[in-house]
Amino acid sequence: MSASLDTGLTRGDYPLSVNRPELLRTPTGKPITALTMDAVVSGELSAEDLRIAPETLELQAQLADASNRPQLAMNFRRAAEMCAIPDAEVLGMYNALRPRASTAAGLAALADRLETTWSAPVCAGLVREAAEVYARRDLLARAGAEDGEDTP
């Protein structure tokens, strides 16, 4: 998600659901105002329509920046990158980051996959940083021990 989506949001725009609903869309492209009970009953809506869109997370990141919360904004930008990744794969990636769950090569491959397959450079950066610290703190799995059964 690029930061080029500069909407000049200020704190006064929050809550977006009240003050700027026209900016909010589902990942399927519906405006938030389309999420009505009639649409639920008629079966027009799927669970996919009740997810947050990466563009919305970028808007919330801008609000976090405007509120002097850079770490929160960074979290939202990583989240924006993750929106497209299926639930099971997100959980798999989380598990791969647990202590001694992955080799250096495994984490490098994960970072590459985040960057190339999912266009998630910020997440990839977090994984690469983890790999560097894990190497220094003996928290990598040995080659051939990807299941985390390795002992130090």
Binding site: R51, N75, R78, A79, V90, Y94, E129
Partner: peptide
Amino acid sequence: WSKAFLASAYASR
């Protein structure tokens, strides 16, 4: 890092 990743996973949903 795993917990920071998990935090973003929640926000992504």
